[in-house]
């Protein structure tokens, strides 16, 4: 990695401006939510249901929550990769606008046919925008995004990470490398490269 920082002065977006899942209070949020500030006036033990009644029935507000399926959507993908730290700056890909919500696309591989019972195979395409056009770290950033997604998503996802057209001089070669699953697998077994990737993914822990 070049020691003098290539782009010493990237524009930085404030974290609260980054797209986030609006905290819609779910239609029937549990009693605690409803009181907001005043929930402190009700002691915690008042909420535990009567131990005698068998808990499954009295737990009703939880069980029907359970059936609502929350599909994996673009925002969830964004939340997975935005906190990755840039190899060059102590900043995240989200705040550097290297990854952006509109550049994430989810499309089913086969037309949704009722026949196949298992959940649909989905193609996930993520376009990344390097901070400057000849950034040599574009491949490493692309690899970091791909590794994070492959470790965090179920195996029915086909992860395609690409450089956005017109944003990088050697986009074509980088995209070909990032698309070659065998080369990616081999890269993951290379100790030094994995060290770099692990440092980049450190930011994702505990978010």
């Amino acid at each position: 990695m070049s020691d003098e920082t290539l782009n010493a002065n990237p524009a930085i977006r404030n974290t609260s401006d980054l797209p986030s899942r609006r905290r819609q209070t779910s239609p029937h949020s549990s009693k605690q939510h409803a009181l907001g500030l005043f929930s402190s006036t009700v002691p915690a033990c008042a909420y535990s249901p009567d131990p005698f009644t068998s808990s499954t029935s009295s737990d009703e507000e939880n069980s029907d929550d359970d059936d609502i399926v929350e599909p994996i959507d673009e925002q969830e993908i964004y939340d997975l990769i935005a906190p990755i730290t840039d190899p060059e700056h102590p900043l995240t890909l989200g705040s550097l606008s290297v990854v952006n919500l509109p550049d994430i696309h989810l499309t089913p591989l086969f037309p949704p046919s009722s026949s196949s019972t298992s959940p649909p195979i989905t193609v996930l395409t993520v376009y990344i925008t390097p901070t400057i056009t000849h950034c040599s770290l574009a491949t490493v950033i692309g690899l970091g995004v791909r590794v994070r997604l492959e470790q965090a998503l179920p195996s029915r996802f086909r992860v395609d990470v690409r450089i956005k057209e017109g944003t990088h001089s050697t986009a074509e070669q980088v995209n070909k490398q990032l698309g070659d699953k065998e080369r990616v697998a081999a890269a993951l077994e290379n100790g030094t490269l994995m060290g770099v990737l692990r440092k980049m993914l450190k930011g994702c822990e505990g978010t």
């Binding site: 609502i68 399926v69 929350e70 994996i72 969830e76 997975l80 470790q151 965090a152 994702c204 822990e205």
Partner: peptide, 18 residues
């Protein structure tokens, strides 16, 4: 990782990464 609740998925991701 394919659990239908987002909260569970998040925990699974953290656990698997660890």
């Amino acid at each position: 990782l394919d659990d239908r609740k987002r909260g569970v998925r998040k925990e699974a991701i953290e656990c698997r990464a660890r």
